[in-house]
């Protein structure tokens, strides 16, 4: 090794304020950095929504059709064939709300799992807080949910229920639901980045959730017989989150204790997911 004369003798070197790019910053600074790039976090999903489905004839209308068709199938199977809808008031609307709300969680979490892999190009080209990737994924799904919500509103009016004062609580419900979805996405994103097999496992997990969160039949119908199973199923915050929508929109019953638990759980999942995701911050996009 050849080292030539040091052009900068040690004595007059000023090395104030050097920092490492691989050292994790405080959560506060990290969140501030995300906030600074909020336009980026929002433009990413908007851009994607615009360019998605451009190759299909009906384009973005599929965002609306997809859950409507699912709800129709569930109505046929659970309402007509199995007859579980009999004990539920307003079963069709009850079902539509459940399907739409559940689909938001399912698409956000499965999209979140794939989000890091899908943004490799951006992450290799630019340095930004990686949490923006699952956040913008969640925002994107929330935006399409906004359009889908118009269908729910239309159904509500069609069945003659119409708006009530409870509707004012909708933003709070959506906020809670989003906290849960985002926390779940953070966890799925990190797991999927470490083990690509997660991508195959997540759909099974989501399918299990679909049948245990009271999307197409009330959880009490099948799980109510055993007290322990009943509690385990109903302590899942998603059961209560879906129920919040029904409580607000069509006046379903609310279990105060479990609802409070769901509120705490949702924010705990967000908090845990965020920390869990950040542990691997400097590994995303580098594999």
């Amino acid at each position: 090794m050849t080292v030539h004369d040091d052009p900068h003798p040690e004595s007059d070197v000023e090395d104030q304020g050097l920092f490492s790019l691989n050292e994790s910053v405080s959560s506060r600074a990290y969140v501030a950095d995300i906030w600074k790039r909020r336009d980026f976090a929002l433009s990413l999903p908007i851009e994607e929504l615009q360019s998605q489905h451009l190759d299909t004839f009906l384009g973005n209308v599929w965002h609306l059709f997809d859950p409507v068709i699912s709800a129709g199938i569930y109505f046929l199977v659970f309402g007509v064939f199995l007859g579980v809808g009999a004990e539920v008031d307003n079963f069709i609307l009850w079902l539509v709300i459940g399907v739409f709300a559940y689909d938001l969680t399912a698409s956000t979490i499965s999209g979140g799992a794939k989000s890091i892999a899908g943004r490799q190009g951006l992450m290799r080209s630019f340095r930004f807080p990686r949490a923006i990737v699952p956040i913008s994924n969640a925002l994107g799904h929330l935006l399409s949910f906004g359009f889908q919500f118009l269908v729910i509103i239309a159904c509500t009016f069609a069945t003659g229920i119409g708006p009530s004062r409870r509707w004012l609580l909708l933003p709070v419900v959506v906020l809670l639901h989003s906290a849960f979805n985002l926390g779940g996405s953070f966890i799925a994103a990190r797991l999927n980045d470490s083990f690509r097999d997660m991508q195959e496992i997540v759909p099974f997990f989501l399918r299990l959730m679909r049948y245990t969160t009271g999307v197409m039949f009330p959880v009490e119908t099948f799980f109510g017989k055993n007290a322990l199973i009943d509690f385990v199923v109903r302590a899942n915050p998603l059961v209560q989150l879906i129920n919040f929508y029904r409580w607000v929109l069509i006046g379903a019953d609310l279990n105060i204790g479990l609802s409070a638990l769901a509120l705490i759980e949702s924010f705990a999942i967000l908090w845990f997911g965020f920390r869990f995701f950040r542990v691997a911050e400097y590994k995303y996009g580098k594999a």
């Binding site: 980026f40 990413l44 851009e47 994607e48 360019s51 998605q52 190009g121 951006l122 080209s125 630019f126």
Partner: peptide
Amino acid sequence: GALMLDATGLKNIKLGCLA
């Protein structure tokens, strides 16, 4: 590196700058 393949060049410029 690739940016967003389906988006236009102009949109990629915007996203890159925001990033």
